[in-house]
């Protein structure tokens, strides 16, 4: 743990906060671009990124995008407001519902809980990039055919979470599928359809479809 202090809030340093809450401290607490930002702050005095816009580069669905965003802009807001990729939705905005799920370097991530500047240098896949225009990815086809969607608002997030999961575990059991998608909420209650779709998609993808 570095001795550097993070910007304090109400006089409470991060160190004091971590002490009081008893949270486990590891070198991984601050990572990626945020860490670089902090390094920049400590080495080059008074050089702070923001609050104004900073140039960033995002790789989304295989394309490179150069943007200017404020450092506080989340990946979700950058995708939706700047790139017009609106498949990922803003619902809880605090990493609970999974409706904003995208893949970051192949892993499912809540786009509402990641800063756009932190997503630089990583491959981001959204629902729009899952299959070529006019085609359905096998997972999407399985969702349609098993009617694993009603109002559809959580569906892109579910499909992306399902993709990350099946990439990791291509042969899930039903019990595993039931548990695996616990990070995504569906109020229409399509969970049973989703489970069927996961198993169906696994079978389709094995068949090379």
């Amino acid at each position: 743990m570095s001795k550097r202090k993070l910007p304090t809030q109400k006089g409470l340093s991060r160190r004091a906060f971590l002490k009081t809450t008893g949270a486990a401290v590891s070198a991984g607490v601050v990572s990626g671009a945020a860490a670089e930002l902090l390094n920049a702050q400590s080495t080059a005095k008074n050089k702070v990124a923001g609050p104004g816009e900073v140039p960033i580069t995002l790789r989304v669905n295989g394309e490179t995008h150069n943007l200017n965003v404020e450092p506080r802009v989340t990946l979700l807001d950058a995708l939706r407001d700047r790139l017009d990729l609106t498949g990922a939705k803003k619902v809880c905005d605090r990493g609970t519902c999974g409706t904003c799920t995208v893949l970051v370097d192949g892993k499912a991530a809540y786009a509402c809980s990641m800063l756009a500047i932190d997503a630089q240098g990583r491959e981001i896949l959204t629902i729009e990039g899952l299959a070529p225009e006019g085609e359905l990815h096998p997972i999407s086809a399985a969702f349609v055919e098993n009617d694993a969607q009603q109002c559809g608002f959580c569906t892109p997030g579910f499909v992306m979470a399902c993709k990350a999961y099946l990439d990791r575990n291509p042969n899930p059991t039903e019990a595993q599928a039931k548990k695996a998608l616990g990070g995504n909420l569906c109020r229409c209650g399509t969970y049973i359809g989703v489970r069927a779709a996961v198993l169906d998609a696994a079978a389709r993808m094995k068949g090379g479809r």
């Binding site: 609106t86 498949g87 803003k90 729009e128 899952l130 359905l136 969702f143 349609v144 559809g152 892109p156």
Partner: peptide, 16 residues
């Protein structure tokens, strides 16, 4: 489902 493909591909446009 009539609107199934639009929803699953993220093409369906909600108000936001």
């Amino acid at each position: 489902r009539k609107e199934g493909r639009d929803k699953v591909t993220g093409r369906a446009r909600y108000v936001d």
